[in-house]
Amino acid sequence: MILDAGWRFARRFAAAARSAPPGPLADFYAAGLPDMKAAPGDMVAIDLETDGLTSASDSIIEAGLVGMTTSAITLATARRHRMRPRRALTGDSVIVHRITDDALAGAETEAEGLAKILPQLAGKAIVAHFAPIEMAFLDAACRRVYGAPFVAPFICTFQLEQRWFPASHRTNELRLGHVRRAYHLPDYTAHDGLIDAIACGELLLAQIARRGKGDLPLASLLRR
C-alpha cells in the first residue's frame, strides 16, 4: 500500500514539476523529493495564518516555518513571513489572529512571500497540524502566482495522532493545544504562525518519541 501510494505521489510530483514555469516553484521541484524509504532527514514545520477558511477566495497572511529533524527543532532556521491579503481584513479574522491591516502594511505580496517560502520547503517533508489547510492554501497561491499546482510530501501531526494512537483521543480533542497537553508540552499563545509551527514541530518530536524511532521510513509518516 505504502509503495503504491508513494509511486502515485511521485508521479503527481513529477507532473506538477513539468507544469511549473521557470522561477521559485520550478526551483522547488528541481530540488526533488526526499528519500521515502529512508528515515526522515531534514523537515520543515509550517503553520499558515489565513484571513478565512476557503483557499480559493481567502489569503495567506502569515507563514511561520522552522527546520527540524525527528529529534530536534533548530530555532536558527525559524522564519516568519507576512503577506498582504488580497482584500481588506474582515473583523472575524482580525479577532482570531490579532493581525490588523496596519501590521500588514509592511508585508509582502503573495508572489514575494512564496518566493521566500518555497526555497525553505524545497527537498524536505513538510510538517503541519491538520495539513489539508496548508496544502490547499499553498496550492491555491501557487496556482494564482505560477499557474501550476503545489505538490509536496506532507506529514500531518493530526492524522499521525489518529493513526498511531487512536485509543488516546476523541475526535474533538485533536486540536493542536489538546494533543500537546497529552504529551505534557507547554501551553503556547495560540495563533501566531511561527509559534504554532514550532508547537507543531514539538508535537511531532513527542509523537515520534512515544512511538519509537525504530523502522520509521519517511513514507510511513506521510499523510495518506
Binding site: I73, T74, L75, G201, E202
Partner: peptide
C-alpha cells in the same frame, strides 16, 4: 533564543 535547539 535564536540559537536554541528544542528537544523532547
Amino acid at each position: 533564543a535564536s540559537a536554541i535547539t528544542i528537544q523532547y
